[in-house]
Amino acid sequence: MSVVAQWFNRRGWRDLIIGLPYLWLVAFFLLPFLIVIAMSVATRTPTAPPFGYGGDNPAINLEGYRRLLSDTLYLRAFVTSLMNAGTATLLCLLLGYPMALGLTRVSKGWRNILLMLVILPFWTSFLLRVYAWMGLMGRNSWFNQLLTDGWNWLVPTAWAVNSVPMMHTNFAVVLVMVYTYLPFMILPLYANLERLDPQLDEAAMDLGSRPSRVFLDVTLPQSIPGIIAGGLLVFIPAAGELVIPTLVGNSASPMIGRVISDEFAQARDWPMASAVAVALLMLMVLPTMAYSHYQSKAEHREDDTP
């Protein structure tokens, strides 16, 4: 120990504390990432590992990117991913916003218990939460029968069904995404709404605004940072999701995560899988950059106000 301490005091802690995580991330994050980029311009070969550069093939092969734009499979997968993730984000917002607002309105004792109940599902396995819905959506389950009975009661007998087809649809994917990602929306929104000054609401009320106007003019504009943070926390993992579409999704219209995994593991087309991965990353980078731009602008604004 004293040797470490002596070295530490002589050299200072800087080198070690900066260097170790730096090297680790360069080795185990940056390098694998660069391999993906390099792989996306390689040529597929029947060797092991299944790729090559140069030789009979062009040194830089843009075939993967060309196919990305010409083969509708990929385009459709991107559209499906964006639609599913977008719908899930919107539904999370519609359900999560009133829940977060409700959490700020209950008594302090209740609030802690309810917050705990929001976080609790996080600690149980993600896979098991998806699995719980597989049980509920199956054809003979009580939930499906309940929905079927409701449907049959509502519509004329000619439209009656034996069960509601839920499993292996995009509807199922969106439903399970909302279920698993809803806490990601509620928690940042709650953190944001909790900080708002209730006196502003009261002032608006005293000045004669109706509750709906107070919400639209006072609460909602102030909660936009929370909405954006929550939206990104739901949208980004949802767009690249692999587990949920594999378990409950429709394999005829796959999401992009599934396409990458299949190209890689089943088709053994590493260059193509890498090209799709690079394209997906580009798609993720744009909203994130927009967000950090927005955030740094907001920080500047805070700095300006005394």
Binding site: Y22, L25, P32, V36, I236, G257, L280, M284
Partner: peptide, 27 residues
């Protein structure tokens, strides 16, 4: 660059982290 490397894995889809790690270990 360092702060970028610390943030990037947070938004990296798991599938991409997965295949990049696998290709890295194979290479």
């Amino acid at each position: 660059f360092f702060s970028g490397m610390v943030t990037a894995p947070l938004i990296m889809p798991e599938v991409i982290t997965g295949i990049s790690s696998l290709m890295f270990f194979i290479m």
